[in-house]
Every structure is written in C-alpha cells, then in structure tokens.
C-alpha cells in the first residue's frame, strides 16, 4: 500500500487505466504463443491458421505412434530426474557452504556456483561437446546429464540459499550447545527446515532440464531428448506435432512448478508468517 494521500496530486484515472491496459497487452503477447500452441494441438489442419479446422486428436495420435518420440520422452524423464537429484544435492551443499562459512576465495566459489546460466547455451553446448568427446563421454544420456547439472545446480543453490536465509542463525549453534554433533544438527535441524526448498529445487531443476534443448542438442548424439526431437521437427517438415508435444511437456512442467510453488509458499508461511510481507 503506497501513501495514496500524497500521490493523489498526480493521479489521473486515464493514465492508470492506460497502464493497466498495457499490462494486459504485455501478457497477451507473452501468452499468445503458449495459448496458440495449445489450441492448434487439437486442430485438424496441416498448416495451422484461422479459421480453425475441426477438433482432432490426430497430432497426439501421430506423436504417440512415433517410437522415437517415446524414446525421447524416456530419455527426457530419466535425464530430468537424475539431473534434478544431482543438482539439488550439489546446490544444497553450495547453499549451506555460503550460509555457514567464510573463507578466502569465497567470491570465486560463488561465481562458479552461479555463473553457468549466464553463459549462452550455444557456447556451453560447443564447449561441452568438444570436451566430453575428448574424454569419451559424449553422445549419450550421461553427457546430457553432466551438462544439464552444470546449468541447473545454480538454480537449486539459489532456491535453497533463500530458504536458509530465513532460518534463525541461532538455531544451529543452539543444537550444538545441546550436544548434537554437526552431522546430527544437519540431519535434524537444517534438512527439515530447508525441506520445502529442497523439494522445490528438485522440481524446478527437473523442469529446467525438461525444456533445455540447445546443450542437449550438441551433446546428446543419438540419445535425443524430447526437446531435441522438437528441434528436429522444426528443422524438417514443420508439423503441428510440435504443438502436441509442447502442450504435453507444458502440462508436465507446470505440474512440477506448481508443486514447487505450493511447497515453497505453503510451508514457508507456516513457519514464519511475518517473513512474507517484506514490502
């Protein structure tokens, strides 16, 4: 709530409405392609446009009948789950390190922990391909996992670090004073407290991995993930099958994100109600 009294001098209904209209336009632009993909995945036309053709599930059937798509889906799921688990473990370690320790070179450590997502994926993809094929790790699902963890771990670290910063810093020393070892404190104090963030990070990193196509395209070789398959469709005969896959992956990703959101906000609000209104 901003101080409406002082602002009223310059308040004008017209401008307010124009700005709100602009917000709507912006969201229209952002959601137009997402909505169109959803709508046209159920549309019979080979070359989608308006007016709409008839309702049809043929693209879903075409996708479901393609064994390569199933293989891609399996790769995507396996890679996503493994990436989620490893990224969350590594991210948790880094977040805890940042929370608890001060040491020389910490800036460098944090840079390493957080920088990878800012490097263009195409460069990362090329570097990974060249390096991994040099050490004979390229062209399989393992190489995609390795590359995705590099990109995903920073997200996990950021999410868990945020949760740790909500923890009362006296909690850990208190447990030590009561005779708990560091390991016991970790197990009975830190992990339970950060659990929603850990699960949140798990789901978010999985979702990031599900949608990543560029690095995966470079390093996956014949073990294509689903997004790489979509890229293949885009390169070859463009077909509404992309919409069907896109809608399916969207539903999958959103389920994960909403789960993560529920975990992060629901649990956090219970533990620390006042932490929510930070404005």
């Amino acid at each position: 709530m901003s101080g409406s009294g002082a602002e009223s001098i310059n308040r004008s209904r017209g401008v307010d409405w124009a700005l709100k209209g602009y917000i709507l336009l912006a969201y229209l632009f952002v959601f137009a392609p997402i909505a169109a993909s959803f709508v046209f995945s159920f549309n019979s036309d080979r070359f989608p446009s308006i007016p709409l053709g008839s309702f049809s599930l043929e693209w879903y059937e075409a996708v479901a009948a393609d064994p390569l798509v199933w293989q891609g889906l399996r790769n995507t799921l396996v890679v996503g789950v493994v990436v989620g688990v490893i990224s969350t473990l590594l991210g948790f370690g880094a977040a805890y390190t940042d929370y608890r320790y001060k040491f020389a070179g910490k800036q460098v450590y944090l840079a390493l922990a957080l920088l990878p997502p800012t490097i263009p994926v195409i460069i990362l993809g090329l570097a990974m391909l060249a390096y991994l094929s040099r050490i004979n790790l390229s062209g399989n699902a393992l190489s995609v996992i390795i590359a995705h963890v590099v990109v995903c771990a920073p997200f996990a670290m950021a999410i868990i670090r945020l949760r740790l910063s909500q923890m009362d810093p006296a909690l850990e020393p208190a447990a030590w004073n009561l005779g708990a070892s560091e390991w016991k404190t970790m197990r009975h104090v830190i992990v339970p407290f950060t659990k929603p963030a850990i699960l949140g990070a798990l789901f978010i990193t999985m979702a990031v991995s599900f949608d990543e196509f560029a690095v995966a395209w470079f390093v996956s070789g014949l073990n294509e993930t689903l997004p790489v398959k979509v890229l293949g469709f885009l390169q070859g005969q463009v077909s509404p099958r992309i919409n069907a896959i896109g809608t399916f992956v969207f539903v999958l990703s959103m389920t994960l994100v909403i789960l993560a959101q529920l975990l992060l906000s629901g649990k956090g609000a219970n533990d620390r109600a006042p932490a929510d209104d930070k404005e």
Partner: peptide
C-alpha cells in the same frame, strides 16, 4: 502478475517460436 510472468520460463522456447510461425506466416493468423 509475478506468478504469470514466471510461467513462460517453463514452457518450451522452441514450441513458442513455432507458435509464432503460425501467427506470422503468409497465411498465418
């Protein structure tokens, strides 16, 4: 508004680009 702006991060960029082709092509929307 923030929640809605986060959603695009979890949709495939490729799919959205393909979707724009549907809007922008010669016989497009």
């Amino acid at each position: 508004a923030v929640f809605l702006m986060v959603i695009p991060f979890f949709t495939s960029y490729l799919v959205r680009v393909y979707s724009w082709q549907i809007f922008l092509s010669d016989n497009g929307i």
